[in-house]
């Protein structure tokens, strides 16, 4: 097939220059990843011990949305594909898992299949659905580039959002509560918040390792190469479109898994998972944490959720300050928390 990306690629701007691992991940990044995950792993015990057990669910959300942000960072920081539509996949995962759970509570069937609230079924299924949807949306959106790509992903996001709104069976735009669902993960009953946190945390660790391996594998090198100079990669004989599409679908699959986890966590299914502002917030998490660092997505999610948790008592306008802080980061410290932590003197290439 002809590659629509090749010819004009050289005219594109010089990608995202600030990816931290453009030259491959440094030892410091691996150290930071390990340290941060270690801190996160003891955080629930700490908040529980200090009598603020309600923060455990916040930490769980940090893990789940951090996973989504990390997978967005993968396409954005390494693949150079700025997606303003990743909430699509969050929603797709949520609706896959949520629909199955709904039908298991209801006793009804979904396309002839009985529902289930067993996470070992719903989560992998959501991942597969996310991958397929990623192939379709990515396949169409990657025919465009630059600003078009951003707008196309956003528009697809909105389209899927409205489709979820149309699913009257799951409450339409109101969504539906799944409070009676169990949090069964295999033989494990994760209805306890701490247990559920560690399940999600384990998933996060697994995908942190996987994505770190992927970006260093030959496949990841090609994807990174496409970001900085697509024409050259094409000249080298790579089918850039296919590599980019595969990367996009992988990211979509992981984001979709996060969506399924999120619905199991909140036990409430609604189209708000797929709202376009959710896409924007994932983007913020990536940037706050540090683009092109993978773990930055989780750090960014942590910073954002903590800010919300903190400011909810002080002001209803916390998003105003998020906006200001984001402007400061974009203009002043574009490498985010991770980059700033590790930045040293090697500032801008």
């Amino acid at each position: 097939m002809s590659d629509p990306q090749t010819a004009p690629a050289s005219r594109e701007r010089t990608g995202i220059r600030l990816g931290l691992w453009a030259r491959g991940p440094s030892r410091w990044h691996i150290a930071l990843t390990v340290v941060f995950l270690a801190l996160l792993s003891v955080a629930p015990l700490w908040v529980e011990a200090s009598g603020r057990g309600y923060l455990v669910t916040v930490l769980t959300r940090v893990v789940i949305f951090g996973l989504a942000a990390m997978s967005l960072d993968f396409v954005m920081g390494y693949g150079g594909m700025v997606s303003l539509g990743h909430a699509t996949f969050l929603g797709a995962g949520a609706y896959t898992a949520g629909a199955l759970t709904y039908h298991s509570l209801d006793g009804s069937r979904l396309l002839g299949i009985p529902g289930t609230d067993q996470a070992l079924v719903t989560w992998p299924l959501a991942t597969v659905v996310g991958a397929l949807l990623g192939l379709v949306i990515g396949g169409l959106s990657l025919r465009t580039k630059g600003v078009y790509f951003i707008m196309a992903t956003l528009a697809f996001n909105q389209m899927i959002y409205f489709l979820f709104n149309a699913l009257e069976i799951y409450g339409g735009d109101d969504g539906v509560g799944l409070f009676a669902a169990s949090r069964a993960i295999g033989p494990l009953d994760a209805s306890d918040d701490i247990v559920f946190f560690y399940v999600c945390f384990a998933v996060l660790v697994v995908f942190t390792v996987i994505l770190n391996l992927v970006v260093r594998a030959p496949f990841g090198r090609v994807v990174r190469g496409c970001r900085s100079n697509m024409a050259r990669m094409a000249a080298l004989g790579y089918q850039t479109y296919r590599y980019r599409l595969a990367a996009f679908a992988l990211s979509a699959a992981i984001t979709s898994l996060a969506g399924a986890m999120a619905v199991t966590e909140s036990q409430f299914l609604s189209p708000s998972f797929a709202e376009w502002t959710e896409s924007g917030e994932l983007l913020i998490m990536v940037i706050v944490g540090g683009l092109g660092s993978l773990i930055g997505g989780v750090i960014g999610a942590g910073a954002l959720f903590l800010l919300e948790e903190l400011s909810i008592d002080i002001t209803d306008n916390w998003q105003f300050f998020v906006g200001i802080g984001l402007l400061a980061i974009v203009l002043g410290a574009p490498r985010g928390l991770t980059g700033t932590l590790l930045g040293g003197r090697r500032s801008h290439d």
């Binding site: 603020r52 910073a303 800010l307 948790e309 980061i329």
Partner: peptide, 25 residues
């Protein structure tokens, strides 16, 4: 020119947020 200033602001802001969050806890 203004880069170090912005950077300082951003670092202070982000860590301020984190610190304040812990303080709130």
């Amino acid at each position: 020119r203004s880069w170090w200033l912005w950077r300082a602001v951003a670092i202070v802001a982000t860590f301020g947020i984190l610190a304040a969050a812990c303080g709130d806890d």
